[in-house]
Design a protein around this nucleic acid. Sequence first.
RNA 1: GGCCUUAUCGUCUAACGGUUAGGACGGAGCCCUCUCAAGGCUCAAAUACGGGUUCGAUCCCCGUUAAGGCUACCA
Length: 523
Amino acid sequence: MAPAFSFRIEASTIITVEFLSLFLYFRSVLLSSRQHPDQVPRLSVRVRFAPSPTGYLHVGGLRTALYNYLFARKNNGAFILRIEDTDRTRYVEGAVQNLIETLNWAGLEYDEGPVKGGTKGPYVQSERIAIYQQYAKELLDAGKAYYAFDTSEELDEMRKMQEKMRVPTKYDRRALKLSPSEIQEKLAAGIPSVIRLKVPDATTVVFDDIVRSRVEFSSDQIDDQVLLKSDGYPTYHLANVVDDHLMKVSHVIRGEEWLSSTPKHVLLYQYFGWKLPVFAHLPLLLNPDKSKLSKRQGDVAVEDYRQKGYLKEALINFVAFLGWNPGDERELFSLDELVNDFSLERVGKSGAVFNIEKLDWLNAQHLRKKPDDEILVMLKEELQRSPFAVKQFADEYLLSVISSMRERVSFAKDFVVNSPYFFESPVQFDAEVVKKRWNIETPEQLKSLVGEFTLLKNPQKEDYEAALHRAAESLNLKNSDLIHPLRLAVSGMGAGPGLYDILYILGNEETIRRITSAIERIH
RNA sequence: GGCCUUAUCGUCUAACGGUUAGGACGGAGCCCUCUCAAGGCUCAAAUACGGGUUCGAUCCCCGUUAAGGCUACCA
């Protein structure tokens, strides 16, 4: 029985080993034949972040800007900022300035763009209207676009009908029936007109996307998009394609919400005879309920996070990991480290929920990594904003507060919020802690402790500790029986740095004063 | 409704046909300890479902379901 059993094991083992070696063989053949992408010479990389100035910078926008920035820096390319302000109805005064300011804060410096300039400017689309009109005209002349004179009421009605008949809502091309003379008449009469893209019938529009690989659309699904509006401004689609071409943008890295309109853009490139850029459509940032990240469900503006005291390092690190990872288990990255490790190939496909708890953790991590002098500056700013603004604290004092609280804060403001006792005598005493740590004998015990402290001259931490030990011994108490009430007396709370650290920072005089005061006030 | 996209712990994600499905945040517990943190250790927690292909599917294909995006003279 035993031999038969062992034989069976042996047989199956042999088979397994055989398949495994076969597998390994093919794998090695495959790997050796695979080309390294680095060896392929690449055209100069130029990318752009192209927000519309409708208010603040959205965190999703920050992520898009960041990926563009990282990709540019990684490949020694150019990072362009372009303002897409072709919708005059949505323009917000000061938004451009705000956008630039926020990008600067985040450390995403652009190479070409408004204010800074560049050889391919202007970088604000409203200053390029003539260019778009010229290209629209070119399409018109080539028969790739056509005039339409429909009013928005007419279009609404058309769409309503289509919905009722349950057919896809798209322009029915009624303007294509107009004769050249009719068109001339209407134009001459000054009837408002738009220029629409003439989408070919029954063809397939295909493009490759780094994130999503090949994507196909049937041209029958594509609407005859308006390219030039009746106010003479281009729509996003025209302006975007024209500018990307003129500005020699090599990679279009943008949010997934643009995926559906990409075939229109591809068509435009084809009509103009222009080389297609490489597309990379980024997964969307999501609310906790998985819908597209929106203002209704929390903060969405970068400046909101900035105001709440989030470090740019943390926000950048966090947002970088929403849709990308380095492939190993590192998680703490500086901007430079991200540049070094970033690749579009490692960008994921599925949307990512913006989860604030991890951002908080990252903030604590980045804050603790900062050198003392940087934290000192932040602490001073926090103090300016606090009720203690009127007081003056020596740098040396603040530095010792920092070293004692470093591991206990997530935000700079926590220094003030979590340990106000370093900046003023306890205003009140935590009732819970009083109940737990304070009893009828405590005042007398603390008084003898004060007796010990009074004897100290220029005490160090160890001196406080020794003094407390002596007091505890003479009172026949455990050290902790003194430590807890003392912390309460001196800080008003039950949590914080080591007691002797607190005493040392406060100084002997202040310590004694606080103990005496607490004895009178706690009952 | 139509088109497109997506689908691994609650969340961010790893594993690009062979793993006890790994890590992180958050949660629970233990250790450390004067408290609170930090740190260390441990635990719970996932391949949406159904079919194929394959010796073998988280991974490839098809379908279902679900979620999201787009469907403007907005971007």
